[in-house]
Nucleic acid binder design. Structure first.
Lengths: 388, 388
DNA sequence: ATGATTTGTTGTGAGATACAACATAAAGCA
DNA sequence: TGCTTTATGTTGTATCTCACAACAAATCAT
């Protein structure tokens, strides 16, 4: 919105955005509930909803049989035909999905590749999936944009992938490539940051305005912050790189990597190693850890938990969040004894800051990144349903 | 503002707030410049300014002789008679000032005490200063609120001082006490966080939307964050406690305190000790450091700088700020070789994140905390000039 | 069936800003 | 000095959006 706040048009757009945002986040809502949530007048909400309906963004459904006194209120739902393309390129596959503004995922493909997907290839895969869907099942859908979750540093201003170590992408203008191949407006974000957004809006962090999200992946530790209810990008969009931090390590014996950073010490590879696995997905690792009763495993889990606790404390002292959400192998690690981790954080962090703090594991499953990617694809539309 | 956004009244209030905010932050501005800055219509700005004038918040002055073609535009300035009381209780004195919404400080008293000031005493000192000023020089002033900068943890919701170690205040309802003694609405904040706000609005961080401020005081290291242009409080308001963090210490020899936190390692006391001073103000310490040429001094400065650099890196990785501002003895420490500190941060932080980063020393002098305290006292008025 | 309750619908009113036309004050220039 | 140019204040009108009130509709309770 080109700073239309303060004008009439601005008010109207904000109100449309508010209504659309509520049904997007909370799902179908009666008009009566919307009036309550927005604080606007009944008649105003009616006209806003009518406008959104005319633009094909929401649909009005028959009232729910609520068994309550009074005239039933029609239910306003996001129009499931409004879709975004969510993309997650990884070393061994590119996952592409169609995600509805209603949260549904009517189409999803994981395209395995036997080589690292190149930027051009990724853009082409997205375009061909889009074409296929447009020609078949999703014929009557309306695709409003593309969102990419990239495992690397993404410059917010232009969607340039500065460096994605595992994809071996370096200064790749992926946003421009995908915009060209699809003709759709495209947004790009760091995968862990998008995970944070997804957990904040639809997962373990629903309704929490100040949270920290840390994700443990095969390649390292990333994350994202939500402050004042908004995702934090920082000046260029690189915020959230917890894995590169250097937390204090109280016991010298706990250090494995000289001059190492958090993700050198707290790592999935070390956990796999100690349980004697070469590789494996998250449940496999969790099962192996649960089954193992060797002291070596307990030691390694303890060591990593101690270091993780210190890293979390640093974040808690600085940000005073009300919630920390852990995903990936950090969830596996933490879930073994969530109470102990909370206690360790409470012991080291400022007492006051840890009072209101809870630590949870991520709630969304494998679709987390796709949901986050779709969210940034929807962002413009949600912020200003009239566009421009 | 009780969520009046989205209504007409809301628009009007927002626009009043916008105009008042601009003249508050940037000083006197011509009406023509205000129209450009707000994007509103000339006639609209005229009526907004008239309303603010009627409410005694701004004054219109004769146009500046600008030597430019065209009809001269009257200059809108904040009314210097609109004042806040800013208070900073310390172990040896309570500083109280009247701070104008124009940024002026027409009155300032440092009341030395030979004992720790108690909460009640502080509240009484504020009330009596207020009475004196109201009876004399500032007879025609309008006091809109009190802001306190407290060296301790302050709960944002109710202005309760949870713990101020040096004042020995514990769970002190200082906001209520001062509101009672003065009859004025009162706001309370942590001193370093208020320093961050002041530097952001009027000091080294002017115009910077993502910054980190660290202050080195006699008692430890505190700070504050600005994210998306807004100060970060966190869930309870305790954010910014960098001093309690545990940064990694690469060289074991650099560690002085087992299990120590940042402010145990990087401390003013250690600097004073190494130059052989018992105590001393900031210039004294800076001079002593500059004059010393013993290797012990250089070693200690180097050691503290190394640890500080790691702590800053942790913040940079997570927040990707465009600016770090250092105050207090951290400024003294950094100023000895700002380039080296920047290099050390660049060497350890993610390369991309340190690209757009600059490190500066604080620009505001001894009035920093008073300006920050006044700012939170003015906050309600600035957010909604009509009140309620 | 009747009343109570809640909410949609409709028409009117109010408030704030945008816009256009005109007025005004300064600088530039002949 | 006086005219032109330029930029801005001033005034009155138009427009837009939301609030409000009155009425209608749909459900539950008796």
């Amino acid at each position: 919105m080109t700073d239309r706040a303060g004008t009439f048009d601005g008010v109207h757009r904000r109100n449309l955005s508010k209504v659309l945002g509520h049904v997007h986040l909370d799902g179908p809502l009666s008009r009566a509930r919307l009036t309550a949530m927005t604080g606007l007048n009944r008649s105003t909400v009616a006209s806003l909803v009518a406008e959104l309906t005319a633009r094909g963004l929401v649909i009005e459904q028959a009232p729910d049989p609520t068994n309550r006194v009074g005239r039933p209120s029609p239910v306003v739902a996001p129009d499931p035909r409004v879709l975004a393309i969510a993309v997650n390129p990884e070393v061994d596959a590119v996952t592409i999905a169609a995600v509805g503004i209603d949260g549904g995922i009517p189409a999803r493909e994981r395209i395995e590749v036997d080589h690292l997907p190149s930027p051009d290839e990724t853009a082409e895969l997205v375009a061909s999936a889009l074409d296929r869907w447009r020609a078949a099942d999703l014929r009557d859908a309306r695709f409003v944009g593309v969102g990419l979750a990239v495992p690397g540093l993404v410059r917010a201003s232009d969607g340039l992938v500065r460096f994605a170590p595992h994809l071996l992408w370096s200064d790749v203008p992926i946003r421009a490539l995908v915009e060209e191949s699809t003709g759709l407006p495209t947004a790009v974000g760091n995968d862990a940051s998008l995970g944070a957004i997804a957990e904040h809006l639809f997962g373990a962090g629903r309704g929490v305005d100040d949270m920290v999200y840390l994700n443990g992946g095969a390649s390292g530790i990333g994350g994202g912050l939500i402050v004042h209810g908004r995702p934090v990008g920082g000046s260029a969009g690189y915020a959230g790189e917890f894995g590169q931090n250097r937390p204090g390590i109280a016991a010298p014996d706990d250090r494995r990597a000289a001059e190492g950073v958090l993700e050198d010490e707290v790592s999935r590879a070390r956990l796999l190693e100690v349980v004697g696995l070469d590789h494996g997905d998250e449940p496999t690792l969790a099962d192996a850890l649960a089954a193992a009763d060797s002291p070596a495993v307990a030691d390694e889990v303890g060591r990593q938990s101690r270091i993780l606790a210190t890293a979390l404390c640093n974040a808690v002292n600085v940000l005073n969040p009300s919630l920390i959400v852990l995903g990936g192998f950090l969830a596996t690690l933490a879930e073994r004894d969530l109470g102990a981790l909370e206690a360790a954080v409470a012991a080291q962090a400022m007492p006051a800051a840890s009072e209101g703090l809870s630590i949870r594991v991520a709630a969304l499953g494998e679709n987390r990144l796709l949901i986050g990617a779709a969210e940034i694809a929807f962002a413009d539309l949600l912020a200003d349903p009239l566009g421009r």
